[in-house]
Design a protein around this nucleic acid. Structure first.
Lengths: 196, 196
DNA sequence: ATATATCGCTAACATACGTTAGTGCAAATT
DNA sequence: AATTTGCACTAACGTATGTTAGCGATATAT
């Protein structure tokens, strides 16, 4: 009877959640079974339920912890007294760093939220919609101030966010450039594409 | 006993495949059941097997028909005697139009190929890898010819392809700009971001 | 009109799944 | 040292899943 090993300041639940992130990314939420998860944690499937309420709870946990991190950062950046295009660049860099360092969670939150159940589902979708609107508003400001090309702001947001999720391919690729180089390249192309 | 209705030049299998595309996009491959599909086709689940071999066959069909269309177009564009940046723009526009008009299939091919089985899986992954390398090669040429900024070509490819998959959000959004406007905006930002 | 192939139906299968109940050991608390 | 709590185990449940078998009706070909 080997217990789940925890490091300092991590509960057993944390261990399960982060193993779940890996699994959900690899296989997708639906295709990843609780028995898979149990194996990767080193325990029987039923034992997981001493720590979590349900499989979906794992997805909530992942999706909302990521969403909250991004929302908080947006609050912070929005209130800084800097030009719109610099705000966009900061947000972009934050997304990139998050996607590089917290790959599994961020990826799952981005791709698997469909499998949330109501009321969490509509909640998440709302947050997402609002988040994008706030980004679009920053871009609109940048357009008005002639920092940014005259483009459709929602389209620009969509490009930015999805381009970032492309870091998935970087993670999978064999011959990776460094994370720093990746960041600079992405900023060059994307901020360059927006700027007049 | 109502038969599956077919239009001219479409087999009953075609009907099933295209309904499957819709369903696989909505719910994901794993979460979409054959009983769901049967309902959307207007038939009992078992009846589907008079036309298809398996659920996975539906995914093959979708993934490879999309992949082949893109490969063929790339062949065509690669051999045109035009500057690299114009090739990239043409490919970009093709992707956008495909994603707009054949949304369901293209989306499924892009997001659900993980659930293919070998040997189809490795096959598909190979095609994908090669496709991206060919795009990267075009970009490299553009860089050498000083049409394109000095950037990491694979990163540029990753941005382009993933940005395009963002058209998913456009499809879902309530207040859509026109497809033509979407295309122009995307080209402006992305080609603009690459060009010196 | 008759024969044949097509195709949708019902019934059922084996399997995989998420999850619960109940037991007993080991760690934490007193 | 005694007691309580935490946690992993085995066993099993109900349900949903992909798929097959076999029957009968309808459309197609002769």
């Amino acid at each position: 009877m080997a217990r789940i090993k925890t490091e300092k300041n991590t509960t057993r639940k944390d261990v399960i959640v982060s193993k779940a992130a890996i699994l959900f990314r690899e296989k997708g939420f639906k295709a990843a079974s609780m028995r898979d998860l149990a194996e990767s944690v080193g325990v029987e499937a039923a034992s997981l339920y001493n720590h979590i309420k349900s499989k979906t709870e794992l997805l909530h946990e992942l999706c909302f912890s990521v969403a909250n991190r991004f929302l908080q950062k947006l609050d912070e950046i929005e209130s800084e007294p800097i030009p719109a295009i610099q705000k966009i660049e900061k947000i972009l860099r934050f997304h990139i760093v998050e996607m590089v360092n917290n790959y599994e969670e961020v990826y799952v939150s981005d791709r698997e939220w469909k499998h949330l159940n109501d009321p969490y589902l509509s909640n998440f979708q709302n947050q997402r919609r609002i988040y994008r609107k706030r980004l679009a508003a920053i871009i609109e400001t940048g357009i008005k101030n002639k920092e940014i090309k005259q483009i459709d702001a929602p389209t620009a947001v969509l490009i930015l966010l999805h381009a970032i999720s492309g870091i998935e391919s970087w993670h999978r690729s064999k011959q990776k450039i460094t994370a720093a180089a990746l960041e600079e390249n992405m900023v060059t192309i994307l901020v360059g594409g927006l700027t007049i």
